[in-house]
Computed example of a mutant assay.
Amino acid sequence: MILHLALAADWAAARQAGEYRVSTLGRTLEQEGYIHACSGREQLDGVAGRYYGGVTEPLVVLAIDESLLGCPVVLETPPGAAERFPHIYGPVPAGAVVSATPYPPAGD
């Protein structure tokens, strides 16, 4: 299971459109080249702190079933990082998201 932190509003729009195309906060799949800010469960809080610190809008954790994606997923180590993270090289079909769970705001 791949986890992706998203603005709840972006996920709501994606459900209507049938696919999710936001890479990370304020950046699209087309701008970034892949869906960024993905992680495993043990990496989630670190991703939240790095990319969503200070965000006051509601966030959700999307649990994505990799087998339902239909596009490549590559484990990559970003520059300056010591860990590998899954990067999704294509849109995420809404049906590949098996759950969307509210993520507590920073400080909770």
Rank of each mutant, 00 (worst) to 15 (best):
G54C: 13
Y89P: 07
H36F: 13
A8V: 01
Q16F: 01
Y34G: 02
P58D: 13
P104E: 13
H87Q: 10
P86Q: 04
R15G: 00
Q31G: 09
A63F: 01
G90E: 06
Y34H: 14
A100H: 06
L69K: 13
P104D: 10
S99M: 10
S67L: 07
P78C: 08
G107H: 11
G26Q: 05
A6Q: 08
E76Y: 04
R15Q: 15
G95Q: 09
T101G: 04
A13W: 00
L59T: 01
C38Q: 00
V73K: 00
G33D: 09
G90L: 11
P91E: 06
A94H: 10
L7C: 10
P86E: 03
V73D: 01
V61A: 10
P72W: 00
I64Y: 00
I2Q: 01
A37H: 02
V73N: 02
T77M: 15
L69M: 12
D10R: 06
E32R: 15
H87G: 00
V47M: 12
P78K: 09
L68D: 05
L75Y: 13
R50N: 12
Y20M: 01
D45F: 12
V92T: 06
A8E: 15
G53K: 13
A8N: 05
I35M: 08
V47A: 08
R84H: 02
Y103Q: 12
Y51W: 15
A6V: 03
G90H: 11
G54Y: 12
T77D: 03
P78Q: 08
V98R: 15
G46P: 06
G54F: 07
E42A: 14
L75V: 00
Y20W: 05
P72N: 06
A6E: 03
V97C: 11
A48D: 08
E42N: 10
L62T: 00
A6L: 09
L68N: 04
L3P: 01
L7M: 12
Y103P: 03
E42I: 04
P91Q: 07
Y103F: 15
D10A: 13
P58M: 04
A12V: 09
R50Y: 04
V74D: 08
S23G: 12
G46I: 02
G70F: 10
G18R: 07
V92C: 02
P78T: 03
